[in-house]
Design a protein around this nucleic acid. Sequence first.
DNA 1: CCGCAAAGGTCCGTCCCGGGGCCATTGGTT
DNA 2: AACCAATGGCCCCGGGACGGACCTTTGCGG
Lengths: 261, 261
Amino acid sequence: MVHSQTIDGSERGVLDQYVHPQSGQTSLPDVVLRPAGGNVFEATVEQLATAIRLGVFTNGEQLPPERELAERLSVSRNTLRDAIAALRESGLVTTKQGRGGGTSVTYAAEHPATVVSGSFVRSGAAMLDALTFRRVVEPGAAWLAATQSLAGDQRAWLTESLREVEIAPDAAAHRVADSRLHLAIATLSGSPMVVDAVTRAQAALHDMLMAIPVLRRNIEHSDAQHHQIVEAILGGDPDRARAVMEEHCDATSALLRGLIG
Amino acid sequence: MVHSQTIDGSERGVLDQYVHPQSGQTSLPDVVLRPAGGNVFEATVEQLATAIRLGVFTNGEQLPPERELAERLSVSRNTLRDAIAALRESGLVTTKQGRGGGTSVTYAAEHPATVVSGSFVRSGAAMLDALTFRRVVEPGAAWLAATQSLAGDQRAWLTESLREVEIAPDAAAHRVADSRLHLAIATLSGSPMVVDAVTRAQAALHDMLMAIPVLRRNIEHSDAQHHQIVEAILGGDPDRARAVMEEHCDATSALLRGLIG
DNA sequence: CCGCAAAGGTCCGTCCCGGGGCCATTGGTT
DNA sequence: AACCAATGGCCCCGGGACGGACCTTTGCGG
């Protein structure tokens, strides 16, 4: 509801600008110049909603105090409050006043349609792009994590994240736990830029996976791969960690490619 | 073990927030919540300056008309004009009025100190991060490019980019041509998100490489690797393309790691 | 020679957002 | 019971970004 909506009604997706309409030729300026995402308010809503949906904040958990969260997001408290209000109206969080109060997550992880209004509808090209991107960064993150000498609590965190995935009671919980595991692996890579990349890939992936039915068989296969990945990371075997993660991404990719344009 | 720890006045850098000061423990909210870069004007200046320094716009070449460029960057023409004015005062571009006029690049690629004022001073941690990130995304991009069935003009573009690197007369020209080659490879991956990632990695890399003396021997070794990479991509050998690119990144990384914190 | 078109140059009104101060509510502590 | 601290709720101001409209310069073509 911001700009866009120029006079040509052709609804150009963000991605179409990467290719010259006339020739199929791509040139560097077309590809490199990326729009600096507009609207701070919407971006904040989107980021918080994504964080919640990805399980960065688990159910019932409290968000940091507004003043702190605002500073961390480099956003004024006003804007942050507006964003939180939007989330509240979407039923993702509830807020309580007073000491010990705050905003806490109430995420049922159901109703795949009731997501926050701005949940981005991605074009087919964007989805394929996200899958491709993920296929690059997630194996890279796994490889890096396996090269690190992990501390005891880090190893425990990884093991615990894996376990949470395996004992997830239903598909929705499994989805959240899966995101958390992948983000944990990315975090153990030690590289903030890698974490950022994986976060974006997971965010895009999440929207897609929420839209399809999940087969029990797929989950079992996926969990077996998770186990191998964690094993390889803990065992310090980067190449194996990467190889299995590649298989893992390819499996998801194959599953999703059939369902999009 | 949530956050808290609000009131320490210790001038925390952007990256430090990824780790808890007290325990070395990292938690997802700390890692995932990323600030949404402020100041649109500065971001625009930085992006254009980077594009020029990376050779996205070659010397003498004209930038797109203001109205078009503004729309592509999702920035108002006012802001874009301010940014261009800043570049003009830094001597990176010149502007001419009237039909056939416009803003064109005048980039000598010398005076490593005269860079635009905002050229980001990255902390040691951020540099290591960038090197790590690059080590993940560039091999991934090369792998992807090698899996694509490239059209004739794409193959020609790649070959030409390689040649430009090899015939570069001096270190500065070599730097620009090198960036262009890497961005070309990323573009041929076909994934905008990958291009974006490589662009960010190259931007960070550029600032580092401009600060160190370059040895003839290093350039020769680098060019040999470039040749192998392009060969592997054109020959449709993804694994080899990735392997050589990894060596290539490792070489640069080793070169730079000695010179930073 | 004249007019048109394609650029940059300028200005203005509107609104979003950041910064900061202050109030209201609530629960713990003395 | 009284106080205090932590937290959300509210408001106002100022600057910056946006989006238009309009002017100026310049080259090309009829």
